[in-house]
């Protein structure tokens, strides 16, 4: 490849002080990683995310009990050695259910974010690249999604499709793809004016090639940052709707649903209310900390200090 085709973000390359020899040879990815590594809270968040993912993958292999296994003899036990998070009225071990709930949370959040990228990336690329009428039609349609409060839109979609986790994933993805398309479009509009895109056009590269090979890699930074925040928001929306009875259905051990079911007995068994909430906080916090650090590393202009 001639250097003409170096599809590298010029801003990131320029950020490396040209005087220092070490930085000159680092790719933007390496630079971002260096910056990310320095942020301790971000590393803590990443470790928390890894833990969540491991627990989700481990599933019933690592839960101490069967998450849905009932045992009347230990009904409503307070947290103790045998059951660190206590048991519910069916004698189900809450720690096992919380761990299984991690899997549900992760499936819903990663599932909805991936689906939202599959929808939003192409829409944003096309809108940003072609502009004009195409862009107007796509973005005005997305405006309708923005015209609704998030939870309300999710509520309406799930209410009409029927309460289930799959429909919830679909609802969350529909909401997120509008955000993705908006961010991608804005970045594409600035990137497509860069010289390397012009160069690609000059050698008669096809539009699809230009978009996929040259523009897409350069708009990924904000998309990745946004996706991380979407992961935490998806966990929150899943928990909210399951709490309202419009997401996971019993006996699925979703955190939100567990919290909802606990309300009847919370004066006698407060642990059933407290722990699912802590699990939600842990997961949302994990992705938020990671997202903050990623944003600072990948997109320094947006950093909050």
């Amino acid at each position: 490849m001639p250097p003409l085709f170096a599809a590298q973000e010029p801003a990131a390359a320029a950020a490396a002080p040209s005087g220092t020899s070490a930085d000159e040879t680092l790719s933007p990815t390496r630079l971002a990683w260096r910056s990310f590594r320095r942020r301790k809270l971000g590393l803590v968040g990443t470790a928390m995310v890894l833990l969540l993912v491991l627990v989700a993958i481990g599933g019933t292999l690592i839960t101490p009990y069967d998450p849905n296994g009932m045992n009347a003899s230990v009904s409503m036990h307070a947290p103790g050695l045998a059951h660190p998070a206590g048991t519910d009225r069916f004698g189900r071990d809450q720690l096992s259910r919380l761990m299984e709930g991690t899997r549900i949370s992760m499936l819903v959040s990663f599932g909805s974010v991936l689906l939202s990228l599959a929808m939003g990336l192409p829409l944003g690329l096309i809108a940003g690249y072609y502009g004009g009428l195409v862009s107007a039609v796509i973005m005005r349609t997305e405006d309708v999604v923005f015209a609704f409060p998030t939870i309300l839109l999710a509520l309406m979609i799930v209410a009409t499709l029927g309460p289930s986790l799959i429909n919830l994933v679909l609802a969350i993805a529909i909401i997120f793809q509008a955000n993705v398309a908006r961010v991608v479009r804005a970045s594409v509009m600035s990137v497509k004016e860069k010289e390397f895109v012009e160069a690609a056009r000059a050698v008669a590269a096809r539009d699809a090639v230009i978009m996929a090979r040259f523009i897409l890699p350069n708009v990924m930074s904000p998309v990745i940052v946004q996706a991380t925040f979407h992961l935490s928001l998806a966990i929150f929306i899943e928990a909210s709707l399951s709490f309202l009875g419009l997401g996971a259905q019993p006996p699925t051990p979703s955190w939100g649903l567990m919290l909802n079911e606990s309300r009847t007995f919370m004066e006698f068994a407060p642990w059933l209310t407290v722990f699912p909430g802590l699990a939600i906080i842990f997961a949302v916090l994990a992705f938020n900390l990671m997202g903050d650090a990623l944003r600072d590393a990948l997109d320094p202009r947006l950093s909050e200090r």
Binding site: S232, F236, A239, S240, F243, G256, L259, S262, R263, M266, E267, P270, T273, V274, P276, G277, I280, I281, V284, L285, N288, L289
Partner: peptide, 18 residues
């Protein structure tokens, strides 16, 4: 502010009622 941001409102509401 970080914790206030990540605490789900429906959980806090439930705890308040509790």
């Amino acid at each position: 502010a970080i914790f206030g941001y990540v605490i789900p409102n429906f959980w806090l509401a439930t705890i308040a009622v509790l």
